[in-house]
Design a protein around this nucleic acid. Structure first.
Lengths: 145, 145
DNA sequence: GAAATAATTGAGACTGAATCTCAATTATTC
DNA sequence: GAATAATTGAGATTCAGTCTCAATTATTTC
């Protein structure tokens, strides 16, 4: 149980921070890893409620924050301002369809190096960035024809 | 009164949309234009409350949304997830200091054309983008030395 | 410009996400 | 295994943002 590298990463983080390794924290991570693609906190809460031993709303919020700080997940805001989480794989950015709300991931290395250049020229030490492009996805464009 | 181009832009938008031109909407725009740089809705509400004829919270929220749709202002989320508004001048992006919360504007034309290329290659029709770079600003770096 | 019509406003109730409180429970340390 | 400190759960609380609906106001028409 709890073999995959994600659990290691979390326990390592907890140890470094002097935090306790609790079943609740591990269970929240396990709920997260069961999600496919993007998810909302309410999804986790509902999924947890379905189990024998459910985890309280407060603990799910608290653990998610810890898991985010451990670098395992990150959050973005969708069109309707909803907070959406996703598992951190490689870094990527997002295109968001203003019509259907679809969130499309992309990665572009030019963009990454451009960020560095922009920051260097202004003495800003960047730790990360968020790029969101809003518009109409190809599927919605076809529908309109 | 209400001579500057911003008021024109708003009344034009209201006419096109078949919405009424009300003193409240104009007054909210005037509150907005008094702000320097970035501001929060609560700032406007507080400023409005100070006046002879104050405008209700609900109307300020409603009018701000209209003013945003008219293209006069836009919003971003700061580090602590606070919703921050700013007057739309030319398009620009943001660097956000994770230490002091400072929001620094920048514009880079390479970034703009790069966006187009990325979208073209994926059949995504972009209408706008948001780029936020998080890190430590030069002032905070000096403080730490 | 007065009447008719439709949109807007204000006050406060309401909603829902997120946080807080604190006693009871549990992980960690020695 | 006892002592200590961290964590949890349940529900209260907070706060931004939205909704309701009667009263008001802008707009249109003649």
């Amino acid at each position: 149980m709890y073999q995959s590298p994600e659990y290691r990463q979390l326990t390592d983080y907890l140890h470094v921070q002097g935090l306790n390794v609790t079943p609740e924290r591990m269970e929240v991570l396990s709920l997260v890893l069961k999600q496919k693609g993007h998810f909302r906190i309410e999804d986790l809460i509902r999924n947890s409620a379905r189990r024998k031993k459910s985890i309280s709303r407060a603990t799910i919020y608290r653990s998610l924050k810890t898991i985010e700080q451990a670098g395992l997940i990150k959050s973005i805001r969708s069109i309707n301002d909803e907070k959406i989480y996703e598992i951190v794989k490689g870094h990527h950015d997002h295109m968001i369809c203003e019509q259907c709300g679809a969130i499309i991931e992309f990665h572009n290395s030019e963009l990454e190096s451009l960020q560095d250049r922009i920051c260097n020229s202004r003495n800003f030490t960047a730790s990360r960035h968020v790029m969101k492009i809003f518009g109409i996805c190809s599927a919605c464009q076809k529908k309109q024809e």
